[in-house]
Design a binder for these strands. Structure first.
Lengths: 125, 125
DNA sequence: GTGGCTGCAAAATGTTTGCACGGAT
DNA sequence: ATCCGTGCAAACATTTTGCAGCCAC
């Protein structure tokens, strides 16, 4: 468990305030507004540490940037390939999917990432 | 549809020969063995073009690198967080998941990426 | 007091771009 | 003949590292 530093709290709060799937840069920008002395390196290190400690989640998205999500509630994502928007999804069929894989393959399954791609309501016209 | 250049064929064949989920660099290395004059830029451009044309698939994995898969057959991945190995999975429950999302949310769903994480058989001991 | 955390700057890594030439259509 | 594709080198973006000082434990 990482140490409870001032920066760690500020970065966690900043991420939660954003309430989306921000890149490191976006978290850094948010944090910098109120606390310009916090370095981007520290944002990198803390987001990774917080994810490791299970307080936030890293998010996998097709743009290849490191992204984080302040909530730990299970949900999935949809990425519109035209406007590049990202939307949260809830699909109930998948609640026990980790167990299914665990049973079928014998792995110890800890989590999964699911991202759909296509066109959102506006863009599919 | 991209043009059918010599390089495009060589890169496609190289990817298929690897039969895994190689990074750009790994495809480039494979291609370079026989065809050292093909540039890495060309590998970037062709893999992206081939994916666009539906002949190969881009793969989403937690390391943030651009990765490709020579097969277009639907399957999912498991990433061992200890040894970092990547394994292919087949889970039949998910066959109609794109349709489910399409119906529930109204998006035009074209594909999805699903990656599990945890410990593989060897590493979970 | 100690060992992890911070900020800075530099380095490493991964990807994109501009351009002149060549080849596919 | 046209225009896309190629190779090269330079630019760019993102992430990592080394290090000296500081702070949580």
């Amino acid at each position: 468990m990482g140490r409870n530093t001032v920066q760690r709290q500020i970065i966690l709060t900043g991420l939660q305030k954003l309430n989306s799937h921000p890149t490191i840069d976006e978290v850094y920008a948010e944090v910098s507004k109120e606390h310009p002395s916090i370095s981007k390196t520290t944002v990198y290190r803390n987001l990774r540490q917080l994810a490791n400690d299970g307080m936030i989640r890293q998010v996998l998205l097709p743009d290849g940037l490191e992204r984080y999500d302040g909530t730990t509630v299970e949900h999935h994502h949809f990425n519109c390939t035209k406007c590049n928007g990202i939307l949260d999804l809830e699909i109930d069929v998948l609640d026990d999917i980790d167990d299914k894989v665990q049973k079928k393959y014998g792995f110890r399954v800890e989590r999964h990432d699911l991202v759909f791609s296509g066109l959102c309501l506006n863009c599919k016209e």
